[in-house]
Design a protein around this nucleic acid. Sequence first.
DNA 1: CCCATATGTATAACATGTGAATCAATGGTG
DNA 2: CACCATTGATTCACATGTTATACATATGGG
Lengths: 161, 161
Amino acid sequence: MTDIAPPLIGSPNLRPFTHSLPMALLRAREATMRWFRPHLAAHGLTEQRWRVLRALTSADGPLDVGQVAERTFLLAPSLSRILTDLKGLGLVHRVADTVDRRRTLLSLTDDGRRLVTRVAPESESIYGRIEERFGAERLDSLLADLRELEDALAEIDGGGR
Amino acid sequence: MTDIAPPLIGSPNLRPFTHSLPMALLRAREATMRWFRPHLAAHGLTEQRWRVLRALTSADGPLDVGQVAERTFLLAPSLSRILTDLKGLGLVHRVADTVDRRRTLLSLTDDGRRLVTRVAPESESIYGRIEERFGAERLDSLLADLRELEDALAEIDGGGR
DNA sequence: CCCATATGTATAACATGTGAATCAATGGTG
DNA sequence: CACCATTGATTCACATGTTATACATATGGG
């Protein structure tokens, strides 16, 4: 609408920065995380550690590393390190599966559960404030769009089918 | 649709993962970047290095580090390291401002400009494919929503004004 | 039972994210 | 001019992202 793309003398024809999807997603995410980070940091948590604790909280029983990776959207190397830290902090158990000994089973310790109980309410409250600022229905609609974008871009083949 | 949020026996009342805004933004961004990374990597570029090159390309003249940081949305420490790399690759100039000697002025070398010229077309083409998959108007609308989200969350004060 | 292969995690190596500290240069102010 | 708070950039320290590789255990033929 308002972007009239000046003729850019002598430079390749590149779309303006802030109008590019990756940058827009990055900026939106950063604007969001800025609200959560101080609260999490106050409890000695990073965003990623919190994701792991949440995944284990919402699970019925123990999860293996692969399941947690999938649910937290963390790559295996990052997750491996984070689990070492969380175990060091006494927040998670990390025991080998007795059936398939390649698997490591993960669950919260009592301390882990207590921490989640302390952190969760304020975390939800922050989310509520965000919802309030942007509008609840708009947020739902945005989430739906994001999911559809993700689905639309899921299979990479670029048209060669 | 199919997720009916079970009553979560005995666990804190936490919104399901994939319904949280930070995760949704993260997943959408990753789904997007998956399309660009192979192309950039084929030219020895990371996403962040490419952002710096683009910023310098679209500028009228030299930029100082602060300006590039703002436009690329990179934090100063990351940018500092990336500039060292880009200078090492002979893609950017990095000279002290003669007027205010705290400032470092950045500009593309001829090699840098040539590289941008080689990379840009395919990059635009990928963006075009993404636009095609998701729909151009929908993408515009999504970008507008993301920007408004960013604006809505810009000032952190939680309502205490 | 032995092997080749597949699978689940973990490590290595390098680049970036993030917050804090450092350091040089600048611009008032007395 | 000397002082000092401010600013621009870098560096430090630690956590994570990203890709490639290693390692152990499983699994399915011969």
